[in-house]
Design a protein around this nucleic acid. Structure first.
Length: 613
RNA sequence: GCUGAUAUAGCUCAGCUGGCUAGAGCACCUGAUUCGUAAUCAGGAGGUCGCGGGUUCGAGUCCCGCUAUCAGCUCCA
């Protein structure tokens, strides 16, 4: 991804890779390392590991010089760079990062050697006796010996690896400052965390910073405002999205596409109420397990809860009439609006909200049907993901320690999930013990434009709710049996999915989803009638268009139209009216061409068809 | 929820260490202009400076509380 550095730095060896993959630095192997692969300074994963870890230490050294009372916890390398957690009496803000960077650059110029020595753990405990954070680190180290790295006056307990001296650490950038719980424990003290990124060469750093800029440009919150898709209102409440006309058009198109694909796959639409008596939630277990996330209220002395999930509605509809084995598998689906009281700090545009709509379905089936049903759902997921060009990965989560149901059923269900994926030639990871208490599941994770992973689709096998609600069917031998319930969502939620779509396409939605698919720009006012005529034809064909015929210059209206990122901007003037044609600016092809109005309509209808799943 | 930061017109932002009627660009309204592929000109209107307290002769500016947003942490579709 990043350009290979071409400069002499590649001659500098900063460590060795052992056959087992372990990295040793030059401090640990001053004589070299026999049978090891040398690691030249560069952008290989191993070199970056060393580089970034050392940059983290360099940052700590700079922070110590600027804030002498700073105490350090840990400073690891992570996917997107490195960070260091620490505590100081002074508050550190974004504007202080420059100061720290400056100090780091001074230290780089000095080319301070980075030395390593090893002491007994007990010695280390004594050495850092006044530093409770280091004591916490030491408590987590099982070995009897610990290593310490020293650069100038700065020393830190560390396993390494590090570069030989600070002069090799030119290309870095501190990216943000934030708080982080000590040891990741919500109830523990909060430390200051500074994040940074480092590369072996300047070009790669530049590329990375450009990528971050691009991510900002694609941010669905920014695009959502620019394209007038959705909004929030401070007085209405946090995490409660409003869909504006263009956003609602986009969403409605997605809903319709998905609705058809559900019907074609044999799903029956159902709809449950938004609010149910709290006793229902007690029976389901939500009240106990999920209660703090639920919105509860009292009506006529009865406690009610706004639904955080749609399962109960579907179960009650199933139970309303007797079911036979002939009815199974029975697939109920609903665009279910749910409310969950998410913590205020986690709300994030449309990606994390308090009211959202799931493309939810519950499939009631026999244990034998689990496998084919799951296979069908996975194929459905794959078709949808392919339609939008998403990369995704899947994970099977197996039986957790606290679980209900006997092992044999768990085994059958888990095996069914695995086989379904294997037979579909799909790869998956295993999250051992990560299942829900009622059954194993497959999670579908989409990778978005910035490389973030989002859990969207999910397929869960549930033996619990059928039991709790006494759900039954009559089998061929006239005995009453318990069906299995499969909970599944393909998109996850329309809100989150549309956020990801927006960033994925950078606001340039494919034709079949675009809120406005065509913008007409009549050259002069007398051409508006022709534009209106075409616009109405389009609406008949299910295509949304707008006419930009305000009293502005032609250039300005074209500019405004282009800024909407619509697939087609159509210019019409005397020539077009005369020949019943259109002059098209095609955003996808980045071309301009003329064709007859009829041919254009045909082209658009064909493109609408591309939206079918 | 926690840590830190931010909140000025519909949007993006000025407004120095508290000092007379709070500025700009875009958007909006009116008029002129009717144009062949990314910003025509002129005029106008629009803000109890997020909300509520406090300090002060005087608060957009300082302090406290609340609300919302942002960066993370913890959690999740």
């Amino acid at each position: 991804m990043y350009s290979q550095q071409r400069i002499r730095v590649s001659e500098t060896i900063i460590g060795y890779k052992k056959s087992d993959g372990e990295i040793v630095d030059t401090q640990s192997a001053p004589q070299g390392c026999e049978g090891c692969e040398p690691i030249p300074l560069g952008n290989s994963p191993e070199a970056l590991e060393i580089l970034r870890h050392s940059t983290a230490h360099l940052m700590a050294q700079a922070i110590r010089e600027l804030y002498p009372d700073a105490q350090f916890f840990v400073g690891p390398v992570v996917d997107e760079g490195f960070y260091y957690d620490f505590r100081t009496s002074e508050k550190i803000g974004e504007e202080d990062l420059k100061k720290i960077e400056k100090k780091m650059k001074e230290l780089i110029k000095k080319k301070i050697p980075i030395e390593k020595y090893t002491i007994e753990k007990s010695e280390a405990v004594e050495k850092f006796r006044n530093d409770d954070l280091k004591q916490a680190v030491l408590r987590n180290i099982p070995s009897e010996e610990v290593s310490i790295y020293r650069q100038g006056d700065f020393e830190d307990l560390c396993r390494g690896p590090h570069v030989p001296n600070t002069g090799l650490l030119h290309n870095f950038k501190l990216t943000r400052v934030a708080g982080a719980y000590l040891g990741g424990d919500e109830n523990a003290e909060m430390l200051t965390r500074v994040y940074g990124i480092a590369f072996a060469d300047k070009e790669s750093l530049k590329e990375h910073l450009k990528m971050l800029e691009e991510a900002k440009r694609r941010d669905h919150r920014k695009l959502g405002a620019e394209l007038e898709l959705f909004m929030f209102d401070e007085e209405a409440g946090a995490g409660l999205p409003f869909w504006m006309p263009k956003g609602a058009r986009l969403r409605s198109k997605l809903e319709q596409i998905l609705w058809c694909s559900h019907r074609q796959r044999g799903y029956e639409p159902v709809r449950g109420p938004e609010i149910l008596k709290a006793d229902m939630w007690r029976t389901s277990g939500h009240y106990a397990c999920y209660g703090e996330n639920m919105y509860l209220t009292e009506i006529d002395g009865q406690e009610y809860g706004l639904k955080p999930m749609n399962c109960i509605g579907h179960i009650l509809i199933y139970k309303h009439s007797g079911k036979s084995y002939r009815d199974l598998p029975l697939k109920y689906f609903e665009y279910g609006v749910v409310h969950r009281h998410e913590k205020s700090g986690v709300l994030h545009g449309l990606l994390r909200v308090r009211e959202f709509t799931q493309d939810d379905a519950h499939i009631f089936c026999t244990p034998e049907q689990i496998k084919p049903v799951v296979l069908e759902v996975v194929e459905f997921v794959d078709a949808v993901m392919k339609k939008f060009g998403f990369e995704y990965s899947m994970e099977i989560s197996t039986k957790p320690e606290k679980a209900i149901g006997d092992d044999a059923v768990w085994e059958t269900a888990t095996q069914a999930l695995k086989e379904a994926l294997d037979e579909n030639g799909l790869e998956y990871g295993i999250d051992e013990g990560g299942g829900a208490f009622y059954g194993p599941k497959i999670d579908v994770k989409i990778t978005d434009a910035i490389g973030r992973k989002w859990q969207c689709g999910t397929v869960q096998v549930d033996f619990n709710l059928p039991e709790r609600f006494d759900v039954e069917y009559v089998d061929e031998d006239n005995s009453r049996k318990r069906p299995v319930m499969i909970h599944r969502a393909i998109l996850g939620s329309f809100e989150r999915f549309i956020a990801i779509l927006t960033e994925h396409y950078a606001g340039e939605f494919p034709f079949f989803l675009a809120p406005t698919q065509v913008i007409f720009v009549p050259i002069a006012s007398e051409h508006s009638a022709y534009a209106r005529e075409l616009s109405e034809r389009m609406l008949d064909g299910g295509i949304d268009s707008e006419i930009y015929d305000r009293n502005d210059s032609l250039n300005k209206r074209i500019r405004q139209a282009e800024k909407q990122k619509v697939p087609y901007v159509v210019i019409v003037g005397d020539e077009e009216v005369k020949s019943q044609s259109v002059a098209v600016r095609d955003r996808r092809k980045k071309e301009q061409y003329n064709l007859s109005a009829d041919d254009f309509m045909l082209q658009l209808k064909k493109q609408l068809e591309e939206g079918k799943i």
